[in-house]
Design a protein around this nucleic acid. Structure first.
Lengths: 211, 211
DNA sequence: GTCTATACAGAGATAGAC
DNA sequence: GTCTATCTCTGTATAGAC
């Protein structure tokens, strides 16, 4: 996507912004053109039609930070860091909520989720399943090393993931109304603290386990 | 809303269904009329215009089960039930996800959240704030009675609420593709178990507290 | 209150000159 | 590759007969 010609990239970015703000259907080709600074018909030199712009945006979601919470790190390498890796992931969610570009992608995704089956497939496989599975591997390894209490890793992964998603939605929603996000933003860290304290095996409990 | 004349109610319900499925903008007045079985122009005998239908739907959200998780019970009366009240709320979320009518309202709400400021106000005040505040009162009372560990009740309320919301979204999304919701449905209960076990003060810990 | 007919505006897309 | 002009279709809304 970064290798597109100047105008095509401008169209892509203007469209993404408008789709995220008003939705795909409510956005007109004329509006996109106006945002880019060209005539409406010139759009068709770069995209076959309006839907082709939408498709290109969906195609490119996979490259975004929205889904790469682990930044290609292998869960098996990072679980040893314990709480700090959870802090890191939690912080990724927070950064994404404030990053102007990724914020648009998230808003676009939520906006069109029920209108586009390809998008739902992306959401399910790349955004949800992939991340939750990686998380559950991390938790599974932590259990084996007796860093955390033993329970269903997949449930644990869902429990860790879901509040982060919710708080992200909160931030993006509040930003849509130019409201303060300060309180919501603190919840990312508080979630990790709360969660880790719940599952960790501290010294006392560890002694109990081995006695 | 239940006191509307026959046709007006039919229009309302057909519109809600279509708005929830395809979004407000993508739904045409003709489609609504076709679903009701009347001519497109006849709609205007019952609603001033298309937007008036949308407004009426938003007005009526407050009457739905979507927001009345507590069914008008006073938090101060129910906290004593401990875990079972959490189970009850968790189950309400699950039921809502499967109830055909409330499911539509939820999907409609998520669909139009970023397109309608009034809807965002409703979401924030009625769906989120109101329920989370009631929850935090419940948790606060539980803390005072030393049923659960002492911490910020509002954080706790958010931590309990957010996975329920997320799992509800999962169910509604999966249903949109006619996929199985069995696994996702189990997460409601597992969440409550996980959560309660985290915060409750069991006998051992209680003894530690008092010694 | 519903119908047919129609007005009117807005949207997506194409043709052809430059 | 961009422009102007235009086509065609679709959508909202109104008028007026029944």
């Amino acid at each position: 996507m970064n290798k597109l010609s100047g105008t095509k990239k401008k169209i892509y970015e203007a469209a993404l912004k408008l789709f995220a703000q008003k939705g795909y259907k409510a956005t007109t080709v004329r509006e996109i053109a106006r945002a880019v600074g060209i005539q409406q018909s010139a759009i068709y030199n770069h995209f076959k039609n309006k839907e082709a712009i939408l498709d290109e945006i969906i195609d490119n979601l996979s490259n975004s930070h929205l889904i790469n919470l682990f930044e290609d790190k292998d869960p098996k390498d990072i679980y040893k860091k314990g709480k700090s890796i959870l802090k890191h992931i939690s912080n990724m969610f927070k950064l994404i909520s404030y990053d102007t570009k990724t914020d648009l992608l998230f808003r676009f995704m939520m906006q069109e989720l029920f209108n586009n089956e390809r998008l739902r497939i992306f959401y399910n496989e790349e955004f949800y399943q992939k991340n939750v599975k990686k998380l559950s591997i991390v938790f599974f390894m932590m259990m084996q090393e007796e860093m955390i209490a033993s329970m269903d890793p997949l449930v644990l992964a869902n429990e860790f993931f879901s509040p982060l998603f919710f708080y992200q939605l909160q931030i993006v929603r509040l930003k849509a109304d130019n409201k303060s996000t300060a309180v919501a933003a603190t919840l990312f860290e508080k979630h990790t603290d709360f969660f880790w304290d719940r599952i960790r095996i501290n010294n006392e409990r560890k002694e109990q386990l081995f006695n």
